[in-house]
């Protein structure tokens, strides 16, 4: 099985998986980070309580998370076509991945920001800081370790989801695993893709944790 063609395919699959994962994480945060900030800020314990806005965001976050990813993948095909122009391949998979990841990322951001010590926020308020300063200089800065751990978790989760997209021809390692391992009974190819996926997750997880630890100044 180890001909050039197979190796090229596995390398391409790995690149595709990384591309899907990282693009989806990036766009997931572009949508999820502001949403998470809004959730934390408008919560009744937040710095700008707004029950109405919170309820709406809360509902959206729960709604999307309650749809199984496989179904979402099919459900959003029209949106995917409108944005990417086609419904298969790695770029097309990014769309449902972002839609699934953004609310999940928003929840993680929300919980990270809520961990920030209330006293420190009050200290900033007592100095006359406005809401924007508090969000940037206090909430996001103080929660950075927890946020980075969140990014690591998000990447791992999105990587797993991206493999699922193989079912609808999404490309990447998951696609290879399904085509060769499931449809053609080539278990060895499937095992190789699994090993690569495991290695990727371990690598990204280790990298994320190392970075967040290095940036954490809370320990003496």
């Amino acid at each position: 099985m180890w001909d050039n063609e197979m190796i090229t395919m596995l390398v391409d699959g790995t690149v595709d998986t990384l591309y899907m994962t990282l693009m989806s994480t990036l766009f997931g945060y572009i949508l999820g980070l502001p949403m998470g900030i809004l959730l934390a800020v408008t919560d009744k314990e937040g710095i700008r309580p707004n029950a109405f806005l919170y309820k709406i965001l809360d509902f959206i976050a729960n709604l999307v998370r309650s749809i199984p990813f496989l179904i979402l993948l099919i459900l959003v095909i029209p949106i995917t076509k409108a944005i990417v122009g086609k419904s298969y391949g790695p770029s097309a998979t990014v769309v449902p991945l972002v839609i699934a990841a953004a609310p999940f990322i928003a929840r993680m951001v929300e919980s990270s920001l809520k961990e920030v010590d209330r006293g420190v926020i009050e200290a900033a308020m007592s100095m006359g800081a406005n809401t924007t300063s508090i969000i940037w200089k206090v909430l996001l800065a103080e929660a950075r370790t927890s946020l980075l751990v969140g990014v690591t978790i998000a990447i791992g989760t999105i990587l797993g989801y991206s493999a699922m997209a193989g079912v609808v021809g999404g490309g990447g390692l998951g696609d290879i695993a399904i085509r060769y391992g499931y449809y053609r009974y080539q278990t060895d190819v499937m095992l190789v893709t699994i090993v690569i996926l495991v290695l990727l997750v371990q690598l990204l997880q280790g990298l994320g944790m190392m970075l967040s630890k290095r940036l954490d100044k809370r320990r003496a």
Partner: peptide, 16 residues
């Protein structure tokens, strides 16, 4: 508020 400083029992410094 910028003219009214405040210090706290638990200091409330920015840890990062």
């Amino acid at each position: 508020r910028q003219k009214i400083g405040m210090i706290f029992q638990h200091f409330n410094l920015l840890m990062q």
